[in-house]
């Protein structure tokens, strides 16, 4: 990535921040972005609490859901960040055509915008995680996170989440009023098939096979282990598979996005807002 790209990335980061946050003060914005992920996490960990109330606590389940949901929120933030940005720019702000005729690649523009949302999602993740751990009485101080592994995994997460965001954006080039629905379907499917709240093994055949080809499953497992401080060798296979899947998703996403972009250009859909 050259200096120009880094400078552009900085501008896109700033732009995204302005669009998302300039309606209020920074402090209020911080609270605002925390509320939704925190309450979504609470909704899920109370499922665990409901079962614990009947069957007695099983902290491992609690931890599974806690990490799963906290990081799932980040996935949502990342995918929605790219796909919604795209949809909003095209349909609402009607900016897409102006961006398109600059010498910035559309995929890079979306990558930059998505990067902001991903980074923004990290803050509520930490807050929600700590609060959730407190509620389920998980001994936080016993955790010895393997930070290098966690950082590597977060970078991998950014790659495959961006890839999924780009794939969704490819569809959005052609949809009319279904923008949100496409985005929601992808994000909800990940909750169902991604090993967020339960192990994917309990999914009926052949749905459990679908899960094996989703990076989210490995990504969450590596996260669960990395936070506990488990050595990289224990998750080596998962990590390798995750790297391969992330790379594959990104390459496929870039190819599909390029193809869809060309089709949309041929059909004249790039500069026509369809839904508003």
């Amino acid at each position: 990535m050259g200096l120009k790209s880094i400078s552009l990335l900085r501008i896109l980061f700033w732009l995204s921040y302005q669009i998302e946050a300039n309606w209020t003060k920074f402090f209020i914005y911080l609270i605002y972005i925390t509320i939704r992920p925190t309450f979504t996490l609470m909704l899920m960990i109370f499922i665990y609490i409901a079962v614990s109330a009947v069957k007695g606590p099983s902290l491992e389940y609690g931890y599974y859901i806690l990490v799963g949901q906290a990081f799932y929120n980040l996935i949502g933030s990342g995918i929605i960040g790219i796909a919604y940005t795209f949809w909003d720019d095209k349909e609402h702000y009607k900016m897409l055509k102006y961006i398109y005729i600059t010498n910035v690649k559309l995929s890079f523009y979306l990558f930059g915008r998505g990067f902001y949302h991903f980074v923004e999602g990290l803050y509520p993740l930490v807050i929600a995680f700590v609060l959730g751990a407190y509620i389920i009485q998980y001994p936080l101080f016993e955790l010895k996170p393997n930070f290098p592994l966690l950082l590597l995994n977060i970078i991998l997460g950014f790659i495959w989440i961006t890839a999924l965001g780009l794939l969704v954006a490819s569809f959005l080039l052609f949809t009319t009023n279904y923008g949100w629905i496409v985005i929601d379907s992808v994000v909800s499917s990940l909750l169902l098939f991604g090993g967020v709240l339960y192990s994917t093994e309990i999914l009926p055949y052949p749905l459990n096979l679908v899960a094996n080809y989703l990076p989210i499953k490995y990504w969450l497992d590596v996260n669960r282990n990395a936070i506990k401080g488990i050595d990289i060798t224990s998750v080596f296979n998962d990590l390798i598979f995750l790297i391969i899947l992330s790379a594959a998703y990104l390459i496929i996403a870039l190819i599909i996005f390029r193809i869809c972009e060309n089709i949309a250009k041929r059909k004249g859909l790039l500069d026509i807002p369809i839904s508003f």
Partner: peptide, 11 residues
């Protein structure tokens, strides 16, 4: 997803 989570915990 929620119901499967309950099931996985034997709720």
């Amino acid at each position: 997803a929620i119901i499967l989570a309950y099931k996985s915990m034997g709720a």
